[in-house]
């Protein structure tokens, strides 16, 4: 029954990727920017959660909510300060700025607290539950539960609320949305807020699950989450969820087969295959340039 255990591990990892990927995909969907700093918001979320738990003695859920709130604010600040001016800039200028913001966040954190890693305190009791002969930690189940709740919440926001409708409208056609009286700037900020909050949540969950956090922890999961977003079809919310889960499971399987050093390559091989074979991803739509 080891495979079941691996599957659960994979899904736990995948749900973290999925939470980060959602932010990527929403931001890309609305302003066509690969927000490289998104992985660093994830890192900030992990640190905020860490300080909330270790310094202020808060429990898991208050820490999670504080991390989400602060990350949402940080996300909006990043958007307002750095990205807003880039709406009409070239793609390359936007991407370089995003890389710059990413480097800035990482190095500012390193400047203030050093590059050394931090051990996450144990906030969730970690019992092993035996299901079908597989030992599954209660943490895994908790993580899965939190992720599912957040995703349902996101679906609700996107499909049932006014701001969600505005987000969909702006991502479809910003000019038309503006003409229809939608405040495009606020909608974009809201997108950043929601995406960053999810990344912050992912940071806290990552810390609790893997117990080790450091200022550069966001780089690789950030890139992989982007891979997940591309895999699912960039701009598609269900795509990001599925892409994240698939990637998490694939990585866990590669590790379980004894190729753990190749684990990181798996994500990029998937990326390249999907880009070459079906660039629009699993749930994406094909677009064609008008001549």
């Amino acid at each position: 029954m080891e495979w079941l255990q691996q599957l659960v591990n994979g899904i736990s990892l995948g749900s973290i990727y999925a939470l980060i990927a959602l932010g990527y995909t929403m931001v890309y969907g609305i302003i066509k920017l690969i927000n490289f700093a998104h992985g660093d918001v994830f890192m900030l979320g992990a640190f905020i959660g860490f300080y909330a738990i270790a310094r202020w003695d808060l429990g898991f859920f208050p820490a999670l909510i504080i991390a989400m709130l602060l990350c949402a604010i940080i996300g909006v600040i990043i958007e307002r300060v750095a990205y807003k001016r880039l709406r009409n800039a070239t793609r390359i200028a936007a991407l370089i700025t995003a890389i710059g913001v990413s480097l800035l966040i990482e190095n500012t954190v390193i400047y203030f607290r050093g590059a050394s890693p931090e051990a996450y305190p144990e906030v969730l009791s970690n019992k092993s539950i035996s299901i079908f002969g597989a030992n599954i930690s209660s943490q895994s189940i908790m993580i899965l539960g939190v992720t599912i709740v957040l995703m349902i919440l996101l679906q609700f926001i996107v499909h049932k609320t006014k701001i969600g409708k505005a987000m969909r409208a702006v991502s479809h056609d910003p000019d038309a949305a503006r003409l229809m009286g939608i405040n495009v700037d606020n909608t974009i900020s809201a997108t950043f807020a929601i995406g960053s909050a999810l990344a912050g949540a992912a940071g806290v969950i990552f810390g609790v699950y893997y117990t080790r956090i450091d200022p550069l922890m966001g780089v690789l999961p950030g890139l992989k989450a982007f891979v997940a977003a591309v895999l699912g079809g960039i701009g598609s919310i269900p795509g990001a969820m599925v892409g994240g889960l698939v990637l998490g499971v694939v990585e866990t399987v590669v590790s379980a087969l004894g190729y753990s050093l190749w684990r990181d390559a798996a994500a990029f091989v998937i990326l390249i295959l999907i880009l070459i074979l079906k660039p629009s991803g699993i749930f994406g739509k094909n677009t064609r340039e008008k001549v």
Binding site: L223, V227, F268, L271, L275, P279
Partner: peptide
Amino acid sequence: GDYLAIATLGFAEI
């Protein structure tokens, strides 16, 4: 554009 950028990044990592 962006897709090429990410693919080259992926290749370099591989």
